[in-house]
Design a protein around this nucleic acid. Sequence first.
DNA 1: CTGAAAGCGCTAACAA
DNA 2: TTGTTAGCGCTTTCAG
Lengths: 337, 337
Amino acid sequence: MDLAPARGAATIEEVAARAGVSRSTVSRVVNGSTAVSPAALEAVRRAIEELQYVPNRAARSLASRQTRAIALVIPEDTDRFFGDPFFGSIVAGIGEVIGESDYVMNMLIASDDASAKALGYLRGGSVDGAIVASHHTSDTFVDRLADAVPVVYGGRPARVRATDHYVDVDNLRGGRDATQYLLDRGHRRLATIAGPADMPAGIDRLQGFRDALADVGLTPVAVEDGDFTEAGGADAMRRILASGEAPEAVFVASDLMARGAFTALREHGYEPGRDVAVIGFDDSAVATSLVPALTTVRQPSHDQGRHMAMMLLDVLAGRATTNTAILPTEIIERASA
Amino acid sequence: MDLAPARGAATIEEVAARAGVSRSTVSRVVNGSTAVSPAALEAVRRAIEELQYVPNRAARSLASRQTRAIALVIPEDTDRFFGDPFFGSIVAGIGEVIGESDYVMNMLIASDDASAKALGYLRGGSVDGAIVASHHTSDTFVDRLADAVPVVYGGRPARVRATDHYVDVDNLRGGRDATQYLLDRGHRRLATIAGPADMPAGIDRLQGFRDALADVGLTPVAVEDGDFTEAGGADAMRRILASGEAPEAVFVASDLMARGAFTALREHGYEPGRDVAVIGFDDSAVATSLVPALTTVRQPSHDQGRHMAMMLLDVLAGRATTNTAILPTEIIERASA
DNA sequence: CTGAAAGCGCTAACAA
DNA sequence: TTGTTAGCGCTTTCAG
């Protein structure tokens, strides 16, 4: 009984030889086929164990035309990916579901400079499907990806095609509700710090804001883009403040930007929640860590992640599934508005 | 001139046929061989373009025995991975270097429940090498990984083997310096909130603390483990405070835990920096976001990431390289100590 | 229940 | 400079 082969990994051939069966039989037990005699099964198992055999994925995927891997593509730069708790939640949700499947999930950061390589990887058949975690309208990248493997988008894609699968939250409604909340508390001079104009989530929340205001015949005091980052939120708030009298209340399209807005407000001598009401969007960990605690629109990111993963699994399994899902948002009242 | 094949991706065979050359010639141009005539090169390029040809990675890697992919393995659960800015820095550093190479990097979250699958993926030849971002002594997982592909560790592995490659920061020295800093400011009753006892980084920082104290004949007032999370840091601080008189100063083995410690201190009526000096470790974004700003030991995580990536690339290329690198730390003085 | 045989799409000698 | 020829390690009919 000798050890594992000195050089390189054991092959199915070696396992077959040691177990005294054919390659086919080894393949059957590896793939859990029932049509194997107990004796053969036992012999093969022993051989696998002794040789520390692990099937070669390239060979397997070449022959079977599937990889049992899915990609989680992040079209953002690393800083934003790690800086915004939103991504953590969504990845956790996806990971939970994929973890219970027999797919492995590999995360790819496809920022501008890395996207060509990532695309080649994906289009070369390295994965059976992909989840794209966020979406910029400028990403021609995802389109080229989508016609190579099944894709599920996080958030409505910029140009929706009939066959697109995606899971979004109701951003329009969320933006509208947040604004209505502010209105209900008697505020009339409202401003907003919006998300990027090239992301549907940013566009929709802003539209909700405008709609709610239009309903009561009001116009925004100011609209500034804050690109979903803390620094961007602070800068946007500064621009709003620089442009004249401070608004009574501001709807900020993400909690992280709201944190920036708090900073900028204080620089100008305004205390958030007392002098200027602030409502955020996300309900991530930063909402509760802020002082005063941030009133915000909760979006179920973790659930969104789960939904996306389940949807992709359905598609891969050829199961019937809806193409889209829109998850509800909810106002979480705290101290800032 | 027809379109790309209706079903499935184009193969090298189809490209060859359309360009009027053999498979080998196509392979040569795809792989950038110089030994191709301008005419053939042009014909092949056109065919590739027209057919939207992308080489199949499984086939390629089966034949060439390499994948041109590396894995970034995260043996942590998702919350900790996204919760601690340390990981963001290190990933950014790694990504920078890998991004310039022709390898693609895929991140694998190998928490306990996902590690078996991840291991199979890795051992099955899906990548040419791996970087393991953090290391728990309990991870038998990484050992089994290491005898399948070249691995570079972030931080000294628990059991160092002669052939191990790793890049660490000087945690022992960092812990010692932090403690000395506190001592130099006249504090004598020192406590520490340590990292997990199953991680070399935690062990070393604690040892540095003990060493510095022992040098001047002092013993710690308290030593509590805070598992590198904010909540863990808060709990540890509470235990320290519950056990008697408050320490004059505390060395906290990570910035995130220091944030938790701030909270716990205030719960007990102590103002960090005024009543109790606090020094952290990392110099991540949380250090500057704290009020008062956190005095801390800076570790060059971004650089560490870069080093790891370069080291792995060296190994994969068969270039000579040192097996280990220890990066220096530095005290960053702010307001909390 | 088992084995033989034919590829999966590509690279890499080797000849020409 | 180019094409021919073998595989890489596995799955998958198809017979038996």
